[in-house]
Amino acid sequence: IHYGMIPRTNRGIFCINELPDLAERIQVGLLNIMEERDVQIRGYKIRLPLDVYVVASANPEDYTNRGRIITPLKDRVGSEIRTHYPRTVEHEIQIMESESNHFITEGLEIIFPQFMKEIIAEITQLARRSNDISQRSGVSVRVSISNFENVLSSASRRALRLKERNVAPRISDLSAIFASTSGKIELDTVGDIKEERVVQKLINAAVLSVFGDYFENREFEQLVAGFERGLSVHVGDDMPSMEYVNQLSKVGGLSKAIDKLNGRGSPASIASSIEFILEGLHLNRRLNKDEVRGKIRYRR
Rank of each mutant, 00 (worst) to 15 (best):
S144M: 11
L162C: 05
N150V: 09
E118G: 03
M116Q: 04
L152V: 14
Q125D: 10
R170T: 09
M96V: 02
Q94Y: 08
M96P: 08
L152G: 10
P169D: 01
T105H: 11
T105M: 13
G107P: 01
S100Q: 09
Q114I: 10
A155K: 06
E149S: 00
S153V: 13
V167C: 09
K117R: 08
S153R: 14
N147Q: 04
S154H: 03
N101K: 13
E122H: 10
A159R: 02
Q135V: 05
I111R: 14
A155R: 05
N166E: 11
A168N: 01
N147S: 12
I145M: 01
R128Y: 08
R136H: 08
F115W: 01
G138D: 03
E97C: 12
E149R: 00
S137L: 15
E149P: 00
A127D: 02
S146K: 13
S172V: 14
Q114K: 09
S98M: 10
I120H: 06
I111A: 10
V141Q: 15
E118H: 01
E99H: 04
I133C: 05
S154P: 03
N101M: 10
A127S: 10
M96Y: 04
E99F: 11
S153F: 11
S172K: 09
F103D: 07
F112H: 06
T124P: 05
K163T: 07
N166P: 02
A159N: 03
R170S: 09
L160Y: 11
A121L: 03
R142L: 05
E118P: 05
V151K: 01
R142M: 04
I145A: 00
R158N: 05
N131T: 10
V141M: 12
A127G: 07
P169H: 05
Q135E: 11
K163N: 14
E106N: 13
